[in-house]
Amino acid sequence: MSLDKATVAKVANLARIKIEEKDLEPMAAELNNILGWVEQLGEVDTDNVEPMTSVAEMRLRWRADEVTDGGYVEDVVANAPGGEDGYFAVPKVIE
């Protein structure tokens, strides 16, 4: 599997990272270098192996349904680069 420029552009869009047209080709090369190296995983027999998504051998803990948090709008918006009246703000979205 090899990434071309168009795929890099598509992936960059999914990741919302702007990449200049001239940088797409070098980035494709860099990513292909890494992905090529990763290909060796194909050598490992993983038939009937369950993927490991967590190393913690325990059950998910549940929280009691109680209101214990929130109610501090100033803290929530304190670091926001935009917004007013307790709202966050982003460039206008036209739906």
Binding site: R63, D65, E66, V67, T68, D69, G70, G71, V73, D75, V76, V77, D85, G86, Y87, F88
Partner: peptide
């Protein structure tokens, strides 16, 4: 429910903006 799926903030409807928001 009283609180949110993954945080302890209130799940009630119709509060002031961002007043029922935890850091989570």
């Amino acid at each position: 429910t009283k609180s949110k799926l993954f945080s302890g903030a209130s799940a009630e409807y119709g509060a002031d903006p961002n007043s029922q928001v935890s850091f989570v």
